[in-house]
Computed example of a mutant assay.
Amino acid sequence: MGTKKKAPLRVKSLTAGRPPMARPPKSISRKATKRLINSHHQLEKRRLQAVARNDKAAETAIAADIEALGGLARYQQASLQGQHHERGGDSSRVLMQWLGIDDNSKATASQPAAEKPSSLTSAPLRMLEVGALSINNACSASGCFRMERIDLNSQGPGITQQDFLQRPKPQSDSERFDIISLSLVLNYVPQHKDRGEMLLRCLNFLHEPGMVSADDTKASSTPATDDDIQKYFPSVFMVLPEPCVANSRYLTEEHLTDMMSVLGFDLLESKASQRLVYYLWVRKRPAPSFIPRFPKKELRSGSTRNNFSIVLQGT
């Protein structure tokens, strides 16, 4: 009786003995994203109002409601979801288009490579990105800027956890920036006076008009001699939800322009989409010795208006 041959040993896949990998969080629908962000904004506003009243019970209850929504981390996940290309993409791409550079540091179709701002890819321009959610946006990928990123709740390496309103003021020009990005930041600041304070603080952190970062990072600053550099910097890139400007009782584009003009900025570029408005404000004049007060004042009436406002306390 012949010996029975053994069945060949079946080699299992290396993955067979591994535990299942963690799955990435499910994508949030556009409707759910908008609802979560709006709810978070409203609750945070009510929480700060309770703090101002010294109402500890209300503050605790509202904080619990915010945590029930997933807290700041969930809010940021929704904001990151909004940056996906299918949701309209990264807002800094608009800035890159204004500068004549696309996501890959190439010229745009309307501006050939020979005509794009030649100094942008070689100059040591510094950008402070306030409210940064990612280190992979268009500005970071362009190679035009030495990036510094801050956010109230850092999402990982490359983003410093810091409140811009609490950031120590620069001690020298080497600590100042050529451009500050406030993309969907002002609308998240709950108090209208703090929004104005944020704009005022930009004057401290930007170079003076006509000056840009020096080649030597230890040097103070240098005059902007290139026409393209001089045209665009120093500046503030601002993005707001469209209703904040188009449908507010207390803020219109004209009112915002007047406010920025008082601070020494001229509007160089603007764009409006269905959901967002984009602005590039270039610093043209030094900080004024006197700043008039811009109070919360009704500019448009109507029951369907929202209450977004920016208040400058003045000097």
Rank of each mutant, 00 (worst) to 15 (best):
residue 47 R to A: 14
residue 142 S to N: 14
residue 175 E to C: 02
residue 217 T to Q: 08
residue 315 T to F: 06
residue 44 E to P: 08
residue 307 N to R: 13
residue 106 K to I: 07
residue 206 L to K: 00
residue 189 V to A: 03
residue 179 I to Q: 08
residue 291 I to E: 04
residue 184 L to C: 04
residue 57 A to L: 08
residue 205 F to R: 05
residue 310 I to K: 06
residue 250 Y to D: 02
residue 40 H to E: 11
residue 283 R to Y: 13
residue 234 P to M: 01
residue 177 F to N: 05
residue 25 P to W: 14
residue 156 G to F: 01
residue 213 S to P: 10
residue 274 Q to I: 15
residue 277 V to T: 12
residue 171 Q to S: 14
residue 117 P to I: 10
residue 179 I to C: 01
residue 246 A to V: 06
residue 237 F to N: 02
residue 125 L to P: 03
residue 57 A to E: 04
residue 251 L to I: 05
residue 270 S to V: 13
residue 275 R to K: 14
residue 273 S to T: 15
residue 287 A to Q: 03
residue 252 T to I: 06
residue 54 N to P: 01
residue 6 K to D: 07
residue 256 L to T: 12
residue 312 L to G: 04
residue 273 S to G: 15
residue 185 V to G: 05
residue 68 A to F: 04
residue 295 P to E: 15
residue 224 A to W: 03
residue 132 A to V: 12
residue 238 M to L: 15
residue 248 S to R: 04
residue 194 D to M: 02
residue 173 D to G: 15
residue 285 R to A: 08
residue 224 A to Q: 10
residue 156 G to T: 02
residue 179 I to S: 02
residue 249 R to G: 13
residue 108 T to F: 01
residue 214 A to F: 04
residue 73 A to W: 00
residue 184 L to S: 01
residue 87 R to V: 05
residue 23 R to F: 03
residue 29 S to R: 09
residue 109 A to R: 15
residue 77 Q to F: 08
residue 100 G to R: 15
residue 49 Q to H: 11
residue 96 M to L: 15
residue 117 P to F: 05
residue 228 D to H: 13
residue 155 Q to L: 10
residue 292 P to E: 04
residue 166 Q to L: 15
residue 226 D to M: 11
residue 69 L to A: 10
residue 314 G to S: 12
residue 309 S to F: 00
residue 62 I to F: 03
residue 128 L to G: 14
residue 174 S to E: 13
residue 294 F to M: 12
residue 4 K to L: 12
residue 100 G to A: 02
residue 107 A to F: 06
residue 286 P to D: 05
residue 29 S to E: 01
residue 179 I to W: 01
residue 5 K to W: 10
residue 253 E to V: 08
residue 5 K to Y: 02
residue 14 L to N: 10
residue 286 P to T: 03
residue 280 L to F: 07
residue 261 S to Y: 11
residue 174 S to P: 02
residue 145 F to S: 01
residue 264 G to Y: 03
residue 208 E to I: 08
residue 73 A to G: 11
residue 250 Y to F: 09
residue 148 E to A: 03
residue 175 E to D: 11
residue 79 S to E: 14
residue 123 A to L: 04
residue 253 E to P: 11
residue 284 K to M: 04
residue 7 A to W: 02
residue 72 L to R: 10
residue 99 L to T: 10
residue 91 S to P: 12
residue 179 I to K: 00
residue 111 Q to F: 01
residue 105 S to I: 07
residue 142 S to L: 10
residue 86 E to N: 13
residue 100 G to E: 03
residue 8 P to M: 09
residue 156 G to W: 00
residue 302 G to W: 09
residue 144 C to P: 01
residue 187 N to F: 02
residue 267 L to G: 08
residue 163 D to W: 00
